[in-house]
Design a binder for these strands. Sequence first.
DNA 1: CTCGAATGAGTAACCGGTTACACATAAAAT
DNA 2: ATTTTATGTGTAACCGGTTACTCATTCGAG
Lengths: 331, 331
Amino acid sequence: MVTIKDVAKHVGVSVATVSRVLNETGYVHEDTRRMVEKAIQELNYTPNEVARSLYKRKSKLIGLLLPDITNPYFPQLARGVEDRMQESGFRLIFGNSDESEQKERDYIQTFVQNNAVGIISSTNFPGMEAYRRLNIPVVFLDRISSDRPAVYADGREGGRIAAQQIIKRGSRRIAVLQGPAHIRPAQDRFQGAVEVLQDTGVAYEVIRTASFALTEAEEKAKELFAAFPETDGVIASNDMAAIAVLHEALRLGKKVPEDVQIIGFDDIPLIGLLSPPLSTIRQPAYDMGYKAAELMIRLIEGQPVEQQNIQMPVEFVERGSTRKIPEKRRE
Amino acid sequence: MVTIKDVAKHVGVSVATVSRVLNETGYVHEDTRRMVEKAIQELNYTPNEVARSLYKRKSKLIGLLLPDITNPYFPQLARGVEDRMQESGFRLIFGNSDESEQKERDYIQTFVQNNAVGIISSTNFPGMEAYRRLNIPVVFLDRISSDRPAVYADGREGGRIAAQQIIKRGSRRIAVLQGPAHIRPAQDRFQGAVEVLQDTGVAYEVIRTASFALTEAEEKAKELFAAFPETDGVIASNDMAAIAVLHEALRLGKKVPEDVQIIGFDDIPLIGLLSPPLSTIRQPAYDMGYKAAELMIRLIEGQPVEQQNIQMPVEFVERGSTRKIPEKRRE
DNA sequence: CTCGAATGAGTAACCGGTTACACATAAAAT
DNA sequence: ATTTTATGTGTAACCGGTTACTCATTCGAG
């Protein structure tokens, strides 16, 4: 490995001078600078980030914690984060938490041990001690916390829109999947939907789910139609759940959207290619990741942050799992 | 930040002793050990990996380079890698290369700068100088290189199976998507298919593609049916391409699988839910990631590696984009 | 009882950078 | 001509660990 000493020796200057060239700090004579740069080229030297990080007590590493990259929603978040971080020269240490508190703790610890300068997390445990103890910025992504910066979609509005649309399109006995109780955005969606349902007086049932796992969603879908066979509209907690519901409905011989309308949440890739293609409430996942990274960079660099909490807009994506509205006027 | 010095002071011993306790090296009196451990607990001390890494010239970090995590195939690879790495206490620095040589180079450089002990890469440029220069192990994942360890699926056999199946199920004018020319597994699939096609004397056409990007796949799908409208079977280079072909076929009013059969490659999530659900050649993506990580760990730890190249089996997954075989006997 | 081996623990060098400080020289100000 | 100030560069401490080396004490074997 070629070190700063090798470069210094090669040019015949001290390491301090090389360091100055590297960091463009202090005074360096133009001729010296050129010679050093030439040597760096020739020796193919790149400074060791570890040594740098040790002295400065900070690295160019950011911890990114997502529940499960295998779930099609999260890669988009990750990609948004990465693209923004990459622009500013930060790198990601990445981990899947599997919604496990222990795994989260472990990852947070190693982030700290590696002098990470920030953590972006779609945690399931925003109140966790491990987060409170940190003295590096934390941005919650697709999550909400009262005391931490966060980037998330407007779940309540999403829920409201879902309910409005499904009612407008004719469903009258609606089932609402509640989603994990401890995840705020999921609850917001649920509440938004319930609000509208109550206001309009449409009959609805609630199905609780504990996680976003597909297997659980499949069970709940079965339960749903077993307990409430008359259901003619389902507002799912996310697209994966919606897929499970869709599958179960078709398995039972129901027609979608004629017998049952289904609205998902997220707009994950490929759901537009299902049959019927799923109508959903779209979250701008990539943009959310990007914004979270942007917010993080501001926090790291100590720049003023106008808003700690960034709420992103959602929109209804009309596809085939909801009925068409004949009238010209659509909301 | 609490350091080893704080712990040492707290107990009244030297840092060397604390280090010995930490690493279970050298002689430490039982009583001393207990006191140190107690102090570590009380002060909530965790050793700084950066300092450790600097002295040892190696970290617990592994670089993982994938083309695009947003492509549904790659998260499974990533997950397999992560799960295995996590078991042995390694962490991942993750990057998307976007099939860009420059990005790959940049990432490789930062991996090295951070004392990463290994790189797992689904590179598009296996012969690249940047890889050759490395003095840490590199494992290619879903890629093949003559001079590097690699984990990949048996593309040739996959191609053969795809061709056999599509012929057996009645297609007689077959289009084969070739996939990126510089990616060996893609070429292997292609060649496997062509082999069978030639051996059996079935008519076929070749459509070249340069990347795995969905947009390109869509164009090629259009070209395919424009140039060869008689096509009654398509062997796609991967599932995303198959989806594009499926879409285009349906758009043209063709019936799948009655008019055109389609076979993909990979078996990415959700394609079993399309309509018709896609038949495909399944690669064990998760297992491939897992194995690659395993291989990497062996290389890092200097354990004997029986085989540098691990070829994983593929299997035909029969779904709705291929016709059923009436006979009892199926291969 | 003597001596080598085993045990226990501290000192200080080292990893590869950054930077405070010192020092020398040149340029500008008085 | 003298004092400031700006420029250019080197020395060495420091970041937080690990470990080679040293030294002291205890233990067991002969």
